[in-house]
Design a protein around this nucleic acid. Structure first.
Length: 253
DNA sequence: AAGAACTGCAACCGCCGGCGT
DNA sequence: CACGCCGGCGGTTGCAGTTCT
């Protein structure tokens, strides 16, 4: 007994691609009035669309902070690593890549995955084995993540780190992106990273990072911009360290 | 040049969880 | 506590543009 579709109440709503005029109406309205109620928005903005459609159009396409264009190698790498950690949690992955939307990442992944599958079919057993290994690792990651989420309830968490991700969007109670990384950070993966990190720092002669803090609730430093919360939180872990943490987490999981 | 096949992406759909009543 | 509303998420589809034959 699922909910009735949001558009059921208003027949004759327009579907399909958005016109520039509709985009303008939506942008003008959202910029003038913060989108409080998406359900009412179409009526108020003079759009013959379903509220859901408006929200999607805004979040995936019209938002001013959206970064368009091809994914950089760094982003590609982050997506691979994050996917190995959290699986198909596109919103979580998107939260770590400022300016990218979950839809975009999902599309990117799906097309990449298709390529990989095609490649494995064409290139024989080696690539196929890699694909299978990757899929196994992903499933294990998801299973592990779910275990982490159940045990996280007993884990103490610093207030500064847990309050910092709302701006990244997609926060969802216990499943907020920050929590995923908090869980990882507070898990044995985080422990291992901190130990290795401290050891490396000692070897390199710098002060050991005793009790290194969470990577500012984790978003990668946005290039140039800072709409994310990262800037107003103590960033105790550098980009490089964060990258190392991601790599390690992916390997560990 | 034309049709077929493929690709990438915007948009839709159905479900879920949080929240207010 | 149950219910309904709403926002958000992930999976899927449809179609325009591109490449191949």
């Amino acid at each position: 007994m699922g909910r009735t579709p949001c558009c059921e109440s208003r027949q004759g709503l327009k579907k399909g691609p958005w016109t520039p005029e509709e985009d303008k109406l939506l942008v003008d309205y959202v910029q003038a009035n913060a989108p409080g109620n998406w359900r009412m928005l179409p009526k108020l903005a003079g759009l013959n669309r379903c509220g859901k459609s408006c929200r999607l159009r805004w979040t995936n396409y019209l938002r001013p902070d959206i970064k368009r264009g091809p994914f950089t190698p760094e982003e590609h790498k982050s997506i691979l690593q994050l996917h190995a950690i959290v699986g198909n949690k596109w919103s979580m992955i998107a939260a770590q890549l400022p300016g990218r939307t979950d839809n975009e990442i999902k599309n990117y992944w799906n097309t990449n995955l298709k390529k990989q599958l095609r490649a494995s079919a064409g290139a024989g057993c080696l690539a196929a084995r890699h694909t299978a290994q990757w899929e196994t690792a992903r499933l294990e990651a998801e299973a592990r993540l779910s275990m982490l989420s159940t045990s996280a309830a007993t884990t103490s968490v610093t207030a500064s780190s847990s309050s910092s991700t709302a701006a990244a969007g997609g926060e969802h109670g216990a499943d907020a992106p920050s929590d995923v990384f908090l869980r990882l950070w507070n898990s044995e993966v985080g422990d291992t990273f901190r130990r290795k990190s401290a050891g490396r720092a000692a070897r390199e002669g710098s002060a050991p990072r005793e009790g290194a803090q969470l990577p500012a609730a984790a978003p990668l430093p946005p290039p140039g911009d800072d709409s994310s919360a990262a800037s107003n939180v103590t960033t105790a872990v550098t980009t490089e360290e964060y990258q190392v943490f991601l790599e390690m987490a992916a390997e560990e999981l």
